[in-house]
Simulated scan of single mutants.
Amino acid sequence: MPLTQTKQCANCPWKVDPDLSQIPGYSRENHEALKGTIANPNFDLLDQLTSPKVAMGCHYSTDDKLLECVAGIYHQLRNNNLPLRLILMRCATRPQATNQIKDLEIDGAQRATLAEILKD
């Protein structure tokens, strides 16, 4: 399935500036539940490949429509999240998704980790 978006939201929780309590659709509880989408260097390779991981969802997602978090994907690719890389490789084989990964747009200063976001 191709990505639904490639540009980071203006008020993305990964950005340093936004006040999390002012972000539309943001839920700390939902964000904490996404810890399973984060690369974990303590997992062995087999565990990373077999455990059910998903891409982090955008705070604008609804029950009816899941939007991927562009910043979540960007940061996890940099952190060598193997399950996410495999998911995106499958997406990239489809013609409409071929250039999406290289087209990811991040805007401004970013928090480096999910833990940084959750400490606010």
Results as ranks from 00 to 15, higher is better:
K102C: 00
L46V: 07
Q22T: 15
L20E: 11
P52C: 01
V54F: 07
K119I: 07
K7F: 01
E29H: 10
T113A: 12
D44V: 07
C12N: 12
D19N: 13
R90Y: 01
N99F: 08
I73V: 14
A55M: 14
N81Y: 03
S51V: 00
C91K: 09
I117E: 02
Y60C: 04
N99I: 02
N42K: 11
L67K: 11
L67W: 15
P13E: 14
R28E: 15
L34R: 12
P24G: 04
Y26W: 14
L104R: 08
Q96E: 15
K7D: 10
G25I: 08
N79V: 02
T6D: 02
A92E: 10
R94W: 00
D19F: 05
L104G: 06
N79Y: 12
G72R: 13
A109R: 10
V54T: 14
E68A: 09
N79T: 02
L3P: 03
M89V: 08
T6N: 08
I101E: 03
D44N: 15
P83W: 12
E29I: 14
C58L: 09
Q96G: 00
P2N: 11
N81R: 08
E32C: 14
P24N: 07
G36M: 04
K53D: 01
Q110V: 13
P52S: 11
L77Y: 07
Q5T: 14
H31L: 13
N81F: 10
M56N: 05
K65I: 05
R94I: 11
S51M: 15
P41C: 13
L114W: 12
V16R: 15
D19Y: 07
M89D: 09
S61T: 13
N79L: 06
I38G: 06
A33M: 09
I87K: 11
L118P: 00
I73D: 05
Q110S: 00
L82W: 05
K7R: 15
D64N: 14
L46F: 13
A112L: 12
Q96V: 11
M1I: 08
P83M: 07
D17L: 09
A97M: 06
L46C: 03
L114T: 03
D17H: 14
N99G: 08
D47R: 12
C58T: 13
T37W: 01
A97P: 01
G57E: 07
Q5E: 03
Y26D: 04
N99A: 08
K53T: 08
C91A: 10
C69N: 13
C12P: 02
L34S: 14
A33S: 13
I101C: 02
